[in-house]
Amino acid sequence: MRPRTRKPGTTLLCVGSILFLSLTAPALAIDAPETINIDVMSKFYGPVTFDHAMHVDYASCEECHHHTTGEIVADPNCARCHTHHDAKTVVSCSKCHVADRFNQEYISKLEDPELYHLDKPGLKGAYHLNCVSCHVTTSGPTGCVDCHALTEAGEKLYRTGAFTPETKTASGKEH
């Protein structure tokens, strides 16, 4: 039988994780992450480190999470069905809003006559529609690169940065 001695490394890990948890969750008095790294779609733009803790001061949970956090939804249309809903175990955006919104499989699902949410935006649409509209009213950043920097692929797509078109001479213009 091996002696039940704890290695110093394990202790440190335990203390560390407790310290980490105490720093993140209870500080907001809600069980929510401090920051979220949004990187599932980073192709032309880099990932966004979303400061969740900061945004909690600007909006109530339901404004972004709808009925999933257990809060009562303000939208009367949503409230018709989602008045008394308990908090869901998973409230992340990507749980309901799919990243690949226009694939064939998803589109064929829309033909279900029982389906009510046939106009649910994809993940990218959900983020931008929710974030940008609020940023406009609260004077938050609204420019593309104010939130996420262009990647090299992005610069190539937009023909900007290192890929900026050379200024054409008068004869170069075809008309």
């Binding site: 032309f44 919104r101 106009d119 649409g125 931008h128 529609l129 593309c144």
Partner: peptide, 18 residues
């Protein structure tokens, strides 16, 4: 590529429903 989903793709009949 549209970030705002200003463009929604689907069956024409579903686009009308949407």
């Amino acid at each position: 590529v549209c970030p705002q989903e200003a463009l929604s793709f689907g069956k024409r009949s579903d686009c009308i429903s949407m």
